[in-house]
Computed example of a mutant assay.
Amino acid sequence: MSLRVNGIVIDARRVADEIDQHQDAADPEVAAQHALVSRELLRQRAFDLRLFNENDAMGASDDAIVDALFSRDVHVHRPTEAECRAYFHEHAGQFRVGDRVQASHILFAMSATVPLSTTLERAQLALNTVLANPDAFESVAQAMSDCPSGRAGGSLGMLARGSGAPEFELVLFCGDRLGVVPRLVNTRYGFHVVRIERRVKGHMPRFERVAGRIAAQLYEQARARALRHYVALLAGAAEICGANDDDGPLRMQ
């Protein structure tokens, strides 16, 4: 069965092209289907409301379509100063300046020629091994890591904020934990087994210096939640059939 949204077909080639954007998902193909269905629902809604004509709706960017729909249908809450201050105090570690972490990792890189499940299985095996025997970290890194750092036992040296992938840094700079992180860290590069060896704390800036960044971050989080809810409402009123769904319409999350 083809992937269809209210009778509009999303062909397999588009799904295949989209999969590359979702390699860090548990099921990249389903994630790609959901993304394409979401975009099609939003495009159709914009056309139905005559916010764009058909040609413009086809050529408009995703952001332009969402902006047009939100200006008509959705109010996104803008955070107050009190909410921003509360976030600042509750997540102080995100805003310290000069934090550094000495860390090592074992990387299991994504590959178009290796099934995701195989890569995940190897990564989990390595994690289980070093959790049971932390002294084995260097030898496991040398034997299994897909990163050149594996030759040095996985050592990444002393890292500052902004030097790595954001999803990797969320783990490195969150909290005060030392030792092997007890779960795999998933980034755009693959799965990582991570060990944190030392922390050097920086200093806290004044709230006023980061207030704008916090407000923008909280607004984007609220906008993302509103968008998920909006798409779910559209999906509930739509006829959606998915290529990987043997039991009926593709379920939107």
Results as ranks from 00 to 15, higher is better:
residue 223 R to D: 04
residue 203 H to L: 12
residue 182 P to Y: 14
residue 141 A to Q: 02
residue 119 T to G: 02
residue 2 S to N: 08
residue 142 Q to L: 11
residue 19 I to P: 00
residue 222 A to C: 05
residue 16 A to W: 05
residue 27 D to I: 14
residue 168 F to G: 00
residue 68 A to S: 12
residue 122 R to P: 01
residue 175 G to Y: 10
residue 121 E to W: 09
residue 146 D to W: 00
residue 63 D to Q: 14
residue 182 P to F: 15
residue 183 R to E: 13
residue 42 L to F: 04
residue 231 V to T: 05
residue 126 A to F: 00
residue 47 F to P: 02
residue 223 R to I: 05
residue 194 V to D: 03
residue 224 A to M: 09
residue 76 V to D: 01
residue 239 E to G: 01
residue 85 R to H: 06
residue 34 H to V: 06
residue 145 S to H: 06
residue 173 F to Q: 03
residue 91 H to A: 07
residue 242 G to N: 11
residue 161 R to G: 04
residue 5 V to C: 04
residue 241 C to G: 02
residue 34 H to W: 01
residue 245 D to A: 13
residue 85 R to G: 03
residue 56 D to G: 10
residue 109 A to P: 00
residue 194 V to A: 09
residue 224 A to Y: 07
residue 147 C to V: 03
residue 233 L to E: 15
residue 94 Q to S: 06
residue 107 L to Q: 02
residue 147 C to R: 05
residue 81 E to D: 13
residue 105 H to F: 07
residue 28 P to Q: 12
residue 247 D to N: 09
residue 81 E to R: 15
residue 109 A to E: 03
residue 48 D to V: 09
residue 206 R to H: 08
residue 28 P to N: 12
residue 18 E to Y: 01
residue 178 L to V: 09
residue 8 I to E: 08
residue 246 D to H: 09
residue 62 D to K: 03
residue 68 A to D: 05
residue 161 R to H: 07
residue 33 Q to P: 00
residue 10 I to Q: 03
residue 64 A to D: 08
residue 115 P to H: 11
residue 27 D to C: 12
residue 204 M to P: 00
residue 13 R to Q: 08
residue 17 D to V: 10
residue 75 H to V: 15
residue 44 Q to M: 05
residue 171 V to K: 02
residue 136 A to S: 15
residue 93 G to I: 05
residue 94 Q to G: 02
residue 244 N to S: 13
residue 88 F to L: 12
residue 139 S to N: 12
residue 31 A to H: 01
residue 59 G to L: 11
residue 81 E to Y: 07
residue 243 A to S: 13
residue 117 S to A: 15
residue 74 V to T: 13
residue 240 I to R: 00
residue 79 P to S: 15
residue 196 I to Q: 01
residue 188 R to F: 06
residue 135 D to R: 14
residue 85 R to S: 04
residue 143 A to Q: 13
residue 13 R to T: 07
residue 85 R to D: 04
residue 96 R to N: 01
residue 195 R to I: 11
residue 40 E to Y: 03
residue 74 V to I: 15
residue 227 L to R: 08
residue 100 R to T: 12
residue 182 P to N: 15
residue 21 Q to Y: 09
residue 234 L to V: 10
residue 134 P to E: 09
residue 102 Q to L: 06
residue 27 D to S: 14
residue 114 V to D: 05
residue 151 R to K: 10
residue 235 A to F: 03
residue 118 T to G: 00
residue 43 R to Q: 11
residue 20 D to N: 10
residue 206 R to F: 04
residue 30 V to S: 07
residue 163 S to K: 11
residue 182 P to V: 15
residue 78 R to G: 07
residue 149 S to T: 09
residue 218 L to Q: 06
residue 209 R to A: 15
residue 245 D to Y: 11
residue 115 P to A: 13
residue 9 V to D: 09
residue 141 A to P: 01
residue 249 P to L: 12
residue 128 N to R: 12
residue 83 E to G: 13
residue 73 D to G: 04
residue 228 R to M: 13
residue 146 D to Q: 01
residue 165 A to Y: 06
residue 212 G to I: 06
residue 55 N to C: 08
residue 206 R to W: 04
residue 33 Q to S: 06
residue 90 E to H: 11
residue 81 E to P: 00
residue 6 N to V: 03
residue 46 A to S: 04
residue 43 R to F: 03
